[in-house]
Design a protein around this nucleic acid. Structure first.
Length: 583
DNA sequence: TACTGTGGCCGTGGTC
DNA sequence: GACCACGGCCAC
């Protein structure tokens, strides 16, 4: 039946594997979906099948999966799609879990309290809890299918664009997708494909980030150049095959600052492909406008538009990648230099019109939202620079901190955009993130710090009596290399070592959740794996002094408050314990 | 072939 | 306490 969940009652590995293969053959799917299957489920199944000498019949040929390109497992006659790879293409999703990806895609999950992986064994061991675990896995399976339904159009479109098979394209890194796409286009143009060469990595100067105007500002607009790097590469014919290495001086363009020179004619390879991509996106967008959302073609067109956008935006970075077939440091460096010139000229134009520039990063500018002036500004950008700049957001009130890339704005719909701050970082506790979000809302709504300061002081004074769940205190950090490879001690590495000692397989790429406990010594000595900690072990002073106060102060310092002014009144635990942990 | 780029912040450990 | 490297994550 459609969307039927199949469960096995088999109580041995070989029986389970056989039954699984039977189900796959019977269902005979074109797509097989997993979440993290390439690194977890397929390798595990293959190993167990080997060990028990059971045939794993999952391909259309009745054969086992094969290890293939890009760390991907291939099933003959079927597209095996690991949806974790799809999640990697969803930049707005920070935490790549089934639950968070589903939530982002608007998929409703019936289970509100997913079971953490570290608790699986405990649930399995207890017969009463085992039912819950089975239910949880069933829920996840249903979610995977729904995520897959959202993913498949995109996967197919990315496959059509890049020329890579659908099961491989989503596993392939961005650079290889671009590489493949360009190879296809070369073929269309009747040109030869350069071979890949081992090249040294030469760094070059990138974009400009402006110093923000610190404080709260009312009625601010943000504007973005549309596809800035691709537009500049097209405009000035920036391409490896138009780069001048000799003495030519006729019909050329010299890039400011870096002084690389490019022929204006004929059009280079990058201009041809980028123009084609941008035109294709325009066509798709226009078609989308004529199509009703209920039309089955609508989601397909949406997926196509997204795939083209992702590919277009990847070309500049690809050009500066030493592993690219069409690598050219001069090309990437020139695009970056032209970007810097563009933003600088835009700032001058804005100022000359009487606009105030509050902040800007790479291809964006924040100015006071004077509607007439902003429209005039957009017109001047078109007239003087031949580029398009779009109004992307209007903020009723926005707060810039002293730091670049960290700000928050109250939108006209009442929603708050948080950028770069602790509240959107995965390596801070939920507690700190929640506190900062609350403080931001209070400050942006009130335009003064009083209410937020009172809230923070109250929380800091009696954190432990709030009885927050342990999950509020867990800090997650990725292990970027094997534990043995670390040069210095760090809390998440220490927690990973403790997990490894207990038999967990902790490898590079894993996220380690830890809690700072009351143990003595350096912070890394106080860090414990989250599943071993109870709320009695929590070092509340640490969470007040090193999580709540810094996260709140980052915002409230903008309005003149100091960290000291946020610490609880004398007499409270937090005050008495001092702030010995902070330098 | 499991690396698209640079700019930036900041906590923590470790040394002087 | 000052200073710096390491390490992780984020903006664009």
């Amino acid at each position: 039946a459609e969307n039927e969940v199949l469960q096995t009652k088999a109580d041995s590995d070989d029986e389970t594997i056989r039954e699984f293969g039977g189900h796959v053959s019977k269902t005979n799917p074109d797509f097989v979906l997993t979440f993290d299957g390439n690194s977890v489920h397929w390798p595990y199944l293959v190993k167990r099948a080997d060990k028990t000498k059971t045939p794993l019949r999952v391909g259309r040929d009745g054969g086992p999966p094969h290890q293939s390109l890009y760390g991907h497992y291939s099933l003959i006659g079927r597209a095996n799609v690991d949806l974790l790879n799809f999640a990697d293409d969803l930049y707005a999703v920070k935490n790549k879990t089934i639950e968070d990806v589903a939530k982002y895609l608007g998929i409703e999950l019936s289970s509100q309290n997913p079971i953490d992986e570290t608790a699986y064994f405990e649930h399995w061991s207890n017969l009463n809890q085992r039912k819950n675990l089975v239910k949880h896995v069933e829920e996840q399976t249903k979610a995977i299918l729904k995520i897959g339904q959202e993913a498949i159009d995109y996967v197919i479109q990315m496959s059509a664009l890049s020329g890579l098979p659908p099961d491989q394209v989503i596993a392939a890194a961005v650079g290889f997708r671009v590489d493949n796409y360009l190879m296809m286009e070369t073929h269309n143009l009747g040109q030869l494909i350069p071979s890949r060469m081992e090249q040294p990595i030469i760094p070059y100067k990138g974009a400009i980030v402006l110093e923000p105007k610190i404080g709260l500002h009312d009625n601010v607009a943000s504007l973005d150049f549309s596809s800035m790097y691709p537009s500049l590469m097209i405009k000035y014919n920036i391409s490896p095959d138009t780069l001048i290495t000799g003495r030519e001086t006729d019909d050329i363009f010299e890039v400011p600052e870096v002084r690389h020179r490019f022929r204006n004619h004929p059009s280079g390879f990058y201009r041809i492909v980028l123009t084609k991509l941008i035109e294709a996106r325009k066509t798709t967008k226009a078609e989308l406008k004529r199509t009703a959302p209920s039309d089955p073609r609508y989601t397909l067109l949406k997926a196509r538009e997204k795939a083209i956008k992702v590919m277009t935006n990847a070309v500049y970075g690809y050009a500066g990648w030493a592993g690219a077939r069409w690598y050219s440091k001069e090309v990437a460096e020139s695009a970056a230099a032209l970007g810097r010139e563009t933003i600088n000229r835009a700032i001058s134009i804005a100022k000359s019109l009487g606009l105030t520039v509050f902040y800007g990063d790479t291809d964006s500018l924040f100015v006071n939202h004077d509607e007439k002036l902003v429209q005039k500004f957009q017109g001047e950008i078109d007239r003087q620079l031949g580029l398009e700049i779009n109004l992307t957001e209007v903020y009723k009130r926005i707060l810039f901190t002293e730091a670049k890339k960290k700000y928050a704005g109250l939108k006209t719909d009442g929603q708050i955009d948080v950028v770069g701050l602790e509240a959107v970082r995965g390596d801070w506790s939920n507690l700190a993130r929640d506190v900062q979000n609350t403080v931001l809302r209070m400050v942006l709504e009130d335009a003064k710090p009083d209410r937020a300061a009172t809230y923070v002081k109250g929380l800091a004074a009696d954190l432990r009596s709030r009885m927050l769940p342990l999950s509020a205190y867990v800090i997650w950090k990725t292990l970027t290399k094997p534990v043995a490879a670390y040069e210095v001690n760090a809390p998440h590495v220490e927690a990973a070592k403790k997990m490894a000692k207990e038999g967990w397989s902790v490898t590079a790429g894993d996220k380690v959740g830890f809690v700072i406990t009351k143990k003595t010594g350096k912070l890394y000595q106080k860090a414990e794996p989250h599943y071993k900690v109870s709320t009695d072990d929590i070092d509340y002073d640490y969470y007040v002094n090193n999580q709540i106060i810094p996260a709140a102060a980052r915002i409230l310092e903008v309005l003149g408050l100091t960290e000291n002014q946020l610490i609880a009144e004398p007499g409270s635990q937090a005050r008495l314990s001092g702030r010995s942990e902070r330098g």
